[in-house]
Design a binder for these strands. Structure first.
Length: 424
RNA sequence: GCGGCUUUGGUGAAGCGGUUAACACACUGGAUUGUGGCUCCAGCAUACAUGGGUUCGAUCCCCAUAAGUCGCCCCA
């Protein structure tokens, strides 16, 4: 299958690349306003970085990484997400000299998972990380940034779920409380949850199978078990979001899949997306920088799935129309016109216009058809007469008016017609 | 990793166990030898995802593989 791209990968073709650029431009503009600098980290890292950063026992690390040995016997992994790399770069480049450090990235991530709509093996994320700031204002800022982006793209149907997953001080007590609660209900839980009981009891809460069972509603809520610091922080985040009119809902069962989260956890969903409706997710990860070898450094961030956003925009018809129009088509009739036509088209291009021509020596009529298909408002026609007289026929395709002008004035004439059209 | 559905030309697709695989769009050429958009004419799948099998014979039946899609899981 030489002609098939690997499973779960996709070519982005010229007809859709405009949508990507549109989204990327929105992102970059917004990040500039919020004061975030773009960072580009390597596509692959030492496997150990992800094992430590994301955590053993998570699905991403255990079953979804593209890991291989390079020729120097190093274990290398294609990044499955960009937070660990960003933190690594933060430490390696000693960015902590100033604080806080606000970064964003756009790039490919790789996860070996079964592909379906909105889930690819190579996919693109936009994400944001703030390092070195513990204030709840930053948690809110980061959520607001994601919210603003989605809103400015014209998306209305958004759900923001918010929770706090506590910190190393209060989470052990909560874990224990949960285990006490579930211990006598173990037989009623699904097999997945039974195995989660020891390892990751928090995950039982967002199990799709057991989630609807009656006793779930009575399970202890983490928000009731938070330590003072976490509770105050959580409270403050909510106050900010409320003041800024971000429509969030508390979801005590929201648990993030990666180990490094502390305190704030959030997720933005677009219900119309179906099974893969989570479009952005993130939260605070105060323990990660230290885990990777830095000083104790608070941090918050999120990642957003660009394919999922683009899918939604397409469904909702919110993508900008493709800009595939040429400005001018150069028509050359006869061999003698070939070189002058090439000179003419080059002059148009150097003047900044999108200029097309026929290379195959097709008939005059066919070249006119091509001009029409290219939606060029102007055709510049070079035939035998024109070449002999050093003239060019400038035809306005919309009005069918045409006029012969000296070769040297062709570009100026073209400019005049195009600006006239623009004015209308 | 698990389950359901799908797979015909550049695109949308019809089709039946049996000598020419509809139709439409797109594309290419043409309709008084230098002018497009409308109309008309012509051309355009030794080929029906791939590999096996059943059959006298399969694009249509069976199996496997691959890819896509939906759901589970997970997540963005």
């Amino acid at each position: 299958m030489l002609t098939n791209a690997p499973r779960g990968t996709k070519d982005i073709l010229p007809e859709t690349v405009g949508s990507w650029q549109y989204l990327e431009t929105k992102i970059r503009d917004l990040c500039r306003c919020y004061g975030y600098g773009e960072i580009r980290t390597p596509t692959f890292e030492h496997t150990e970085l992800f094992r430590r950063g994301i955590g053993e026992g998570t699905d991403v690390v255990d079953k979804e990484m593209y890991t291989f040995q390079d020729r120097g016997e190093r274990s290398i992994t294609l990044r499955p997400e960009n937070t660990a790399s960003t933190v690594r770069a933060y430490l390696q480049n000693k960015l902590y000299a100033s604080s806080p450090v606000k970064l964003f990235y756009i790039g490919s991530m790789f996860r070996y998972d079964r592909p379906q709509a909105g889930r690819l093996r190579e996919f693109h994320q936009f994400g944001v990380e703030v390092l070195g700031e513990a204030s709840a204002a930053v948690d809110a800022e980061v959520i607001l940034l994601a919210w603003d982006l989605l809103k400015s793209l014209g998306l209305e149907d958004l759900t923001v779920s918010l929770n706090s997953v506590g910190c190393p001080k209060c989470r052990p007590a909560y874990r224990a409380a949960l285990q006490d609660f579930f211990r006598d209900k173990l037989p009623e839980l699904c097999s997945d949850c039974q195995s989660r009981f020891e390892r990751a009891p928090l995950r039982i809460l967002d199990c799709k199978v057991d989630g609807g069972k009656d006793f779930m509603a009575d399970a202890p809520k983490i928000t009731d078990c938070l330590c003072d610091e976490c509770r105050e922080h959580f409270q403050a985040v909510q106050e900010y979001l409320t003041a800024l009119k971000v429509n969030f809902a508390l979801d005590p069962r929201l648990v993030r899949g990666l180990d490094y989260y502390t305190k704030t956890a959030f997720e933005i969903k677009i219900p119309s997306l179906g099974a893969q409706s989570a479009v952005a997710g993130g939260g605070r990860y105060d323990g990660l920088v230290k885990e990777i070898g830095g000083n104790d450094t608070p941090a918050v961030g999120f990642a957003l799935g660009m394919e999922r956003v683009l899918m939604t925009l397409e469904q909702a018809g919110k993508l900008p129309p493709p800009n595939d129009k040429a400005d001018v088509f150069v028509v050359a009739a006869g061999d003698a016109a070939k070189i002058p036509a090439f000179e003419l088209i080059t002059a148009c291009r150097r003047a900044g216009y999108t200029a097309l021509m026929d290379y195959a020596g097709r008939s005059f009529k066919s070249q006119m058809k091509q001009a029409d298909k290219a939606k060029a408002p102007v055709a510049l026609i070079l035939g035998e007469d024109e070449v002999r007289d050093s003239m060019v026929t400038v035809k306005n395709m919309a009005s069918s008016q045409q006029e012969k002008v000296p070769l040297g004035e062709a570009v100026a004439k073209l400019a005049a017609i195009l600006s006239e059209r623009k004015g209308e």
